[in-house]
Design a protein around this nucleic acid. Sequence first.
DNA 1: TAATGTGAAACACTTCACAGCG
DNA 2: CGCTGTGAAGTGTTTCACATTA
Lengths: 229, 229
Amino acid sequence: MSSPEIPDIVIRRLPVYLRTLRRMQDLGIESVSSEDLGAHIGVTAAQIRRDFSYFGRFGKQGKGYDVQTLADGIARVLKLDRCWDVALIGFGQLGRAIAHYRGFESNSFRIAAIFARNPDHIGDQVDGVVVMDEATMHEVIPEMGIRIGIIAVPADSSQSVADRLVDSGVQAILNYAPAIIRVPPHVRVREIDPTSALQSLSFYLDTEGQPPDSVFDTSMLPGMTEPRR
Amino acid sequence: MSSPEIPDIVIRRLPVYLRTLRRMQDLGIESVSSEDLGAHIGVTAAQIRRDFSYFGRFGKQGKGYDVQTLADGIARVLKLDRCWDVALIGFGQLGRAIAHYRGFESNSFRIAAIFARNPDHIGDQVDGVVVMDEATMHEVIPEMGIRIGIIAVPADSSQSVADRLVDSGVQAILNYAPAIIRVPPHVRVREIDPTSALQSLSFYLDTEGQPPDSVFDTSMLPGMTEPRR
DNA sequence: TAATGTGAAACACTTCACAGCG
DNA sequence: CGCTGTGAAGTGTTTCACATTA
């Protein structure tokens, strides 16, 4: 009945549930059980029921969940029942790729402002959005009421960009720079870090040909921590 | 002295430690305490000591850790003391961006094969690597001894690509497609999913202007689950 | 003396198992 | 009767706190 403390890990799973439910909607599926939904996603039925229970009662006993109602409920919980303006900082290779990505739009986000440091890029346009000077962030972001920033600058300038985003009133940051950024507690960060992901995957690879030349005993590979089934 | 069961979450933190240590090396820092390292990254000193303890004794009591030794040790644990060939599947907007990304190279990975379905793209070259027909994955990947795949195809073909990667002997997959893929337990997957990341961030945004029109009580925002300090 | 490595405690998350409801 | 929602149990992860050692 209340939400005294919803674990962040639950919040991070909600978009996956939502996406799956929307696909089911498209397929004309009207009702789904926690068992079914879990099987599609690779999590247990119990986890799904527990996750939803943080937000109220979405289901019907003996029946399951109404796909549309559940999807709309999750969208509302995540505040996705509106469009959020986002600021993109950085217009190099990566920044441009993000600016051109059509995939946030259909999911409640719009890149409404783009900032670059390189004067060559300032004035460029993407889809009607003009690339502005990074130095103007401080004025433009509060003025536009933007609360989300995407960092797509090199690692060594990511912290200073983060600081300026926080000063500008941003509350959430999606960080593509390969560096950890430190922010005050009222600001949330998610890292997009493919290199780290690859490097951690490497641990699990067989090395038959290679000698196990390590000083450390890593011969016994751990089991999976990922959701099973 | 042994590594009976190393949690995946520990493995996922190692690349971040490694990157931070390499930067310290570049700065000429030779020694670091768990306290210092933690302060840079945003995790507690106790966590850092616990994480390293899974792999042996890296530190010197009263002194801290030798930066070079520790970095090399982590690299060896992660099997990053060699270069891994990677197969990239998909050569649309996203696939091309990944193919051109110079950032895996310096980090023990090389995109050694690129596969596309669209005949228009087959034969294209990136940095000497020719884009091949997806249909040949099954032969080429085992032949080249590739054990890591990067999926950069649309969501609706991601599962079939994953299946074929697994059939081809791949043990690790970096999935950029906005869909959960199911793989057997001996294969590891990491999702790169900026849209889900943004959607989960949205939950934490203030909505002063907006009415709290939700049926569900989400008025009390949870505290942070992210590392503190 | 300063900082590691680690039992033990605390905390967080997941799963079990079943009462209760449609 | 089938499936949700949830106490309680079980597991996993983090932090405490301190003996230990260079």
